[in-house]
Nucleic acid binder design. Sequence first.
DNA 1: ACCCCGATCGTA
DNA 2: ACGATCGGGGTT
Length: 169
Amino acid sequence: MMILARSFYERPTIVVAQELLGCTLVFQGQKGLITETEAYIGQDDPACHAAKGRTQRTDIMFGPAGFSYVYLIYGMYHCLNFVTEGADFPAAVLIRGIKMSKPDALLLDGPGKLCKALGITREHNGWDITQDESFSVLKKDRAPPYVCSPRIGIKKGLDKYWRFVVQSG
DNA sequence: ACCCCGATCGTA
DNA sequence: ACGATCGGGGTT
């Protein structure tokens, strides 16, 4: 039960996204190994919500690292992110997939699916994920091999290979 | 006040 | 290939 500290998140977003692979996402007693992440990096990244500046929704990304950023997408689903880097540099890592170990190795592939399964909503936006194990990420035992690709579901920023997926599930 | 569109997903 | 569904953010 080694909770990842704020210093883990206060680093380049690409590094955080890569190193989150294989770590354990914990949310209210539920646990899953992180299998897929994406990096969204600053106001120069056209796919980042903060590209158009600081707004009410993106406010959390302009704050310190180690906080959750949860937003509603397509009027139906929620996406879970973790804020990275320093204050006033808006960046975050999207959690796109986890593998549950508890009942039957359920694979939750998709940011909307995993939030629905875990019960994560906008209510959980802006939470400090470095203090309480009920909402946190635990250190990994081993770094799994992974591949890179363009990010999913975006129309801008497709030249950046900022999606990271653990190999073979 | 109005309009467009989105870091998705299940169904056809 | 497409519709569901709604809030954010820009525009009038």
